[in-house]
Simulated assay, not measured.
Amino acid sequence: MGNNPHVTLAQVAKAYGPLISLHLGTQLVIVGSSPAAATAILRTHDRELSGRKVPFALFLREPKLNRVPLAWTFKCNEEWKSFRTLMKSELFTSKKIDNQSIIREKKVHEMVEYLASKEGETVEIREVA
């Protein structure tokens, strides 16, 4: 897919539509490239498509990571799905995320100031409404 896989996937989506399934090696990957496809993936089929591939090599170094239900797991089992649903309904609600916007804005300003100091030039942030 080259150095810009997002560009390649956008071109593929123009030819084949907004919902694409690809095999990258032995891994099946579902790509949604439109708001409707993203809604279908994240809302309609959330529990079926919520699994992810964890590199086996990671477990050779840290086998205990498989016990962390949200971070790394070989399988998307019912315990993991229940924990993920709880996180989504209690921690990642729109209200809770909106309440942390000040923290995010502060971190963005810190990052921009850091980058500006490294580049030696002024970087401006425009407020987006």
Rank of each mutant, 00 (worst) to 15 (best):
I103Q: 07
S89V: 12
S101E: 08
S117A: 15
A38L: 14
S89P: 07
L58F: 08
I97W: 09
V108F: 11
A40F: 10
T73A: 13
L58P: 11
E78V: 03
L86P: 03
P69M: 12
C76H: 11
G51Q: 04
A116P: 14
T39W: 03
Q100W: 03
F92R: 04
R67D: 13
R67G: 15
L65M: 14
H109D: 08
S117G: 15
I103D: 01
K75L: 12
L65Q: 11
I41W: 06
I97E: 02
V112Q: 09
K75Y: 06
K53R: 07
K118N: 13
I125V: 15
A36S: 14
A37H: 05
R47E: 14
L115K: 12
P55R: 01
E105M: 05
K64T: 12
M111F: 07
A71R: 08
E127A: 09
K64M: 14
V54Q: 03
F83T: 10
P35N: 06
D98R: 09
S50T: 01
P55V: 00
G51D: 04
K106C: 08
P63T: 11
K118A: 07
N66I: 10
T39I: 00
R52I: 02
K64Q: 15
R84M: 04
V68K: 08
K107G: 05
D98L: 06
A57C: 00
I97K: 00
R47F: 06
P55C: 00
T73C: 08
K64H: 15
R52N: 09
N77W: 07
E121H: 12
K75S: 11
K75Q: 08
T44I: 02
K81E: 09
K53C: 06
L86T: 11
S82N: 10
E79I: 13
V108K: 08
V108S: 02
V123P: 00
E78A: 10
S89I: 09
S94E: 02
T73P: 00
P55M: 02
A36I: 00
A40K: 06
A71C: 08
R61H: 00
F56D: 13
A36K: 12
E124V: 13
G120C: 13
W72Q: 13
L58T: 11
A37P: 01
V54S: 06
E119Q: 12
V54K: 02
G51Y: 07
V112W: 10
E90D: 01
R61Q: 04
L70W: 08
L70P: 06
W80R: 15
E121F: 03
L70K: 04
E48M: 10
G51R: 05
V54A: 07
L65H: 02
R43Q: 12
S82A: 14
Q100P: 03
L115P: 01
P63Q: 11
E90W: 02
W80G: 04
K75T: 03
A38I: 15
R104T: 03
P69K: 13
L115F: 05
S34T: 11
A37K: 04
R84D: 01
